[in-house]
Amino acid sequence: MKKKILYVEDDSTLAFLTADNLEQQYDVAHFTNGKEAYAAFKKEDFDLCILDVMLPEMDGFELAAAIRERNVEVPIIFLSAKTLKEDRIKGLRLGADDYLVKPYSMEELILKIEVFLQRSQKQAPAKNTLCTIGSYTFDPANYAITRAGQTIQLTERESALLRLFIDNKNTILKREKILNEIWGNDDYFLGRSMDVFISRLRKIFRDDESIRIENIPRIGFKLVAP
């Protein structure tokens, strides 16, 4: 069965060319505005989302945020003519898996689609058991961390990042290793996104002084925990 892709693009010419290429391998549902796309997302299951940023009624950033509220796992790729690094970082902060700047090559887009689809299908049952870190309990299967009866919901990427830190507790992790394992490459903009995710984890653990994520200058990070 073909994987189902939600594709949102209001440029009719670009949408036709892209959808025509993608439909050779995938089941593509194309929409021209964010509201219609989100309505479809709420009714159907999609394996991956490809979103333009500049969309009528609901822009791509708003759409991605709404999608993430309902589903923290589905891969999201932004396609945009907006080249400012602030826009790329904003997209990645919203939980997108990648941000391609127009004009993009179909070969690159399809390669990224395949990478993210394969990654989302990987299962690691042995790593889905509950684990304790300081006064917190981490549930990787449900992307959740609990302390004193209070549960914080993580995104899939936050959960994967925390899992990597726990698996390498009290050991320095190089920035390149983190980026390649969690994001798939060590692009500069993805590095900025990683810093945002690490800041988020630090805030989660701030009430337990026995846990800290240390910045090792020009090398990487180290999770220090009992």
Rank of each mutant, 00 (worst) to 15 (best):
E181H: 03
R147E: 11
F189L: 12
E176I: 03
R175F: 06
R157G: 01
T137N: 12
E156G: 04
L162I: 06
K177N: 08
T146P: 03
Y136H: 05
R119W: 00
I133Y: 02
Q153R: 10
T132C: 13
A126G: 13
K122T: 15
D167K: 15
E156F: 10
S193F: 00
C131I: 12
D167T: 11
P140Q: 06
A160I: 00
F189W: 09
T146E: 14
K174E: 13
I133C: 12
D187T: 04
T151L: 14
F189S: 11
D186C: 07
I172L: 12
G184I: 03
K174D: 08
T129W: 08
K177P: 02
K169E: 10
Q123W: 08
I152W: 02
S159R: 02
E156P: 07
Q118P: 01
I152R: 02
V115S: 02
A141I: 10
K122V: 13
I182Y: 00
R175M: 13
Q121N: 08
I145W: 01
R175V: 04
L190V: 06
N180W: 01
I182D: 00
R147M: 10
W183T: 01
R157C: 05
T137R: 10
C131K: 06
C131M: 07
A141L: 14
Y188I: 12
Y188K: 05
A144N: 06
L161G: 05
N142Y: 11
N185G: 04
A124P: 03
D139H: 09
N128H: 10
D187K: 02
W183S: 07
N185A: 07
N170A: 09
I172G: 03
G149Q: 09
R192T: 10
A126T: 12
R192P: 02
R157H: 08
R163G: 12
Q121A: 14
V115M: 04
R163N: 14
F165G: 00
S193R: 00
L164R: 06
K174G: 06
F165E: 03
C131W: 04
C131Q: 08
N168D: 12
N185L: 02
F116C: 12
A160M: 11
D187H: 06
S193D: 08
T171L: 09
I145C: 11
E114Y: 09
T132L: 15
Y136I: 01
